[in-house]
Every structure is written in C-alpha cells, then in structure tokens.
Amino acid sequence: MAIEDRRERDRAARRQLIVTTARKLAEAEGWDAVTTRRLSTEIEYSQPVLYKHFTGMDQIADAVAVVGFDELATAIRAACTGADSPSDTLSRIAHGYLAFARENPAVYDAMFTRATSLRFADQETPAELVAAFAELRQAIGVVADEQDADSLTELFWAALHGLVTLGRTRRLRPDYESDRVRLLVNQFTDRQRA
C-alpha cells in the first residue's frame, strides 16, 4: 500500500506542477503561449506525461480555473472579515473581487472568458465553483428580503464581471472604480431601507 500511496502523491504533485506552470506562463505571456509542448519543456516531462493527467490545454485551463474559484472564494471570505454592515460587506466583496481579477488576469480569463467544459449551476459543478457562489450568496442573502437571493447573487456577480471586463478593456473611466462600486452596492442595499 505504501508504494501505491507514493505513486498517488507523485501523480498529484505532477498534476499540480502542470497546473501551476500553466498558470505562471499564462500570467506572464498570455494563454496563447501555453501549449502542451511549452509546458512539457518547462516542467521537463514529456508530452505523453501531460496527457496522462489532462486530455489537452482546455482541461489544463479548466484546472487553473478551478484553483482560481477556490482562491476567489477565499478572497471573498477574507473581504467580509470585519465588515460592520451589509453595505460594508458588499463593498468589501466588490473591491476584493475587482482586485482579484486585476491581480490574476489569466486565471480570471480561465474562470470566465475562455471556453470551458466546467459546469455552472449543475449537479456536476465543481465544489470550488459552488463555494465561490455561496460566499457571494451569503452576503447577498442578507439584503435579499423577499427576492430570490440566487438571482440577486447572479446579478451582483454579473455586474462585477462587467466592471472587470469593461475596466480591463479601458471602456470605463479608471479613476471612478470606487464610485461605481458604491453605486452598485447602493442598488442592492438602499432598496432594503425603502
């Protein structure tokens, strides 16, 4: 059994090395630079070894995305720490989300803009995706009142994604991010007082 355990640990370590290396290359040079040939050169394993772990680049990018969702859930959870009101919570989440996207552009692309085989809102949705949504939903649930908290969470998430996408492509005024976040948060919290 010890030999099997070691083989499984080695296999998991190789898989992690592939994902980590793909992520580093994508962040440094963009996803077009990440190929199985390049990865095999970078990690010093043959391409067939890569294919023992992943069927191709799309599956590798999906693995990077899953890691990204796990990190995003952690970032959202951390952003909520110390918040003193629903408005403060949503504001911290929004700023944390935007910072995550800014600091991890290739990971964000893997999560949201690249074609993917990952399933969302499905029984087969990876736990990391579910956890990221759950962190957002918990905060939105506080202000949802009688409205569908899942739909409100999807709307908040979509708005944040829009801010990321439009900001990255310089279609929004860069000095007004805080104003936009404040207005977005107000849309979710002011109606609670009405």
Results as ranks from 00 to 15, higher is better:
I76F: 08
A94Q: 03
F100L: 06
A61S: 13
L166W: 11
R9F: 05
E103V: 03
R171P: 00
D148F: 11
A106S: 15
H161P: 00
D122R: 09
A65C: 10
A127N: 02
A78E: 14
A63W: 07
F188V: 08
L39M: 03
L183W: 07
F156Q: 10
D122W: 07
S91K: 03
L72S: 08
T41R: 14
A13Q: 12
E128T: 13
L152M: 15
E135M: 11
A33E: 04
Q16M: 02
A26I: 11
T81N: 03
I76W: 09
G30K: 11
V66Y: 05
A194Q: 09
L184P: 02
A78N: 13
A2G: 11
L172Q: 11
V185C: 09
R171M: 13
R102K: 14
T21P: 08
E128C: 05
A83F: 05
L184R: 04
R77D: 14
E42V: 02
R11E: 10
C80L: 08
K52Y: 12
F69M: 07
L166C: 07
T74N: 08
L160I: 10
V181L: 11
R193H: 12
D62E: 11
A134P: 01
A106P: 05
Q147C: 02
V164K: 04
P86R: 02
G56K: 04
L160N: 14
R6W: 04
V130E: 12
D10C: 06
R173D: 14
T36F: 01
A101G: 06
T113R: 15
R102T: 13
V164H: 10
V107S: 09
